[in-house]
Computed example of a mutant assay.
Amino acid sequence: MVGNFLAEDNARMESSRLLGRLVSLYGEVNLKNSTLSLPVDLSISITRSAGALGPDIYAFGEEIVYDVKVVNRGPVNEEGIKVRDINILGTISQVTSSLAQTLYNPLTSTWAVGALEYGETAELKIKALINKAGLSTISALVEGAGVDETIQNNSVVQNFCVLLSEPTPILGPTEVCAKNKYVYRVEPVSGASRYTWNVPPIGAIS
Score class of each variant (00 low, 15 high):
V2C: 10
G3R: 12
F5W: 10
A7C: 10
A11S: 13
M13D: 07
M13A: 09
E14L: 05
R17A: 12
R17D: 13
L19M: 10
G20A: 08
G20T: 10
R21D: 11
L22M: 11
V23Q: 11
V29S: 07
K32W: 02
N33C: 01
S34T: 13
S37C: 04
L38F: 09
L42C: 02
T47Q: 13
R48N: 03
A50T: 11
D56R: 11
D56M: 02
I57W: 02
G61I: 02
E62Q: 09
D67T: 14
V68P: 05
E79R: 13
G80T: 10
K82M: 10
V83I: 13
N87T: 11
I88Q: 01
L89Y: 00
G90C: 04
T91R: 05
S93D: 05
S98A: 00
L103N: 15
N105F: 08
P106Q: 03
L107N: 14
T110Q: 06
G114A: 03
E117R: 10
E117L: 13
E117P: 03
E123S: 12
L129I: 07
I130F: 02
A133N: 04
L141G: 05
G146M: 07
I151L: 12
N154K: 03
V157K: 05
F160M: 11
C161A: 06
V162L: 09
V162E: 00
E166P: 02
E166I: 08
I170S: 09
T174P: 00
T174H: 12
V176C: 10
C177I: 05
K179F: 12
R185C: 02
E187F: 13
S193G: 04
S193W: 00
R194A: 15
Y195H: 09
W197G: 01
N198Q: 12
